[in-house]
């Protein structure tokens, strides 16, 4: 169990939301929030990596861009570990 959590701590969820918003005609955070059905505060937190969305929200955000989830979110090792 300890080993599992130790492995999980070394990884983080990353995203390309800022870039994708830029290429989606400079979509605003508010517009993305409305499309994904969340508040702008949540979009800001997800974009800044301060909040890892649930799988459902991740799918909804990806759907707002019309892209598969793997093109919006990534899962990579933290650099400082």
């Amino acid at each position: 169990m300890e080993r599992v959590s130790a492995v999980a701590k070394k990884f983080e969820v990353t995203n390309n939301i800022r870039t994708l918003r830029f290429f989606a005609s400079e979509m605003t955070q508010q517009e993305l929030a409305e499309k994904a059905g969340v508040s702008r505060q949540t979009v800001i937190a997800v974009e800044a990596g301060k909040y890892s969305p649930t799988l459902e929200l991740a799918f909804r955000i990806a759907d707002a861009f019309g892209l598969p989830i793997t093109e919006v979110f990534g899962y990579k090792a933290k650099e400082n570990t």
Binding site: Q30, A33, E34, G37, V38, S39, R40, Q41, T42, A45, Y51, P53, T54, L57
Partner: peptide
């Protein structure tokens, strides 16, 4: 849009 309460 402002008062929406979401998962976060």
């Amino acid at each position: 849009a402002t008062v929406i309460e979401d998962e976060m």
